[in-house]
């Protein structure tokens, strides 16, 4: 898994590519990244998931955790470019309602 970070206005955009999985260590990597952003006071985070090939349950858990942690700290995590597979996973686990999914970057 690879994380790339850039800033647009008051929104930090993180482009994730590869797998967000327990075995690849991606779940903890994502958690650490979100926590460090929140600590820096960068509370608006957009996760671009267009390049994510696979999310396992541990990765899904971290996506939810990131969203919940951000909102507890007065921030927002939103998702961009969900693949069909990830979307299906959110539907099955009934987690779609937890996430704010935006169509494009400027919709944050």
């Amino acid at each position: 898994m690879k994380l790339e970070e850039r800033v647009a206005g008051d929104v930090t955009i993180i482009t994730i590519t590869g797998e967000i999985t327990l075995s690849a260590g991606g779940d903890m990597q994502l958690k650490d990244k979100i926590q460090s952003l929140l600590q820096q006071g960068r509370k608006n985070v957009l996760l671009d998931l267009g390049g994510v090939s696979y999310v396992d349950s541990a990765g899904l858990g971290q996506l939810v955790q990131a969203t919940v942690t951000a909102s507890k700290n007065g921030g927002k995590v939103k998702l961009l470019n969900l693949t069909k597979r990830l979307n299906d996973l959110l539907v099955v686990t009934k987690l779609s309602t937890v996430f704010d999914v935006v169509e494009k970057e400027s919709d944050f």
């Binding site: 858990g61 939810v64 955790q65 919940v68 686990t93 009934k94 987690l95 937890v98």
Partner: peptide
């Protein structure tokens, strides 16, 4: 029918 996974939200 149901709700989201348990133990997270």
């Amino acid at each position: 029918t149901g709700g989201p996974v348990v133990g997270l939200i």
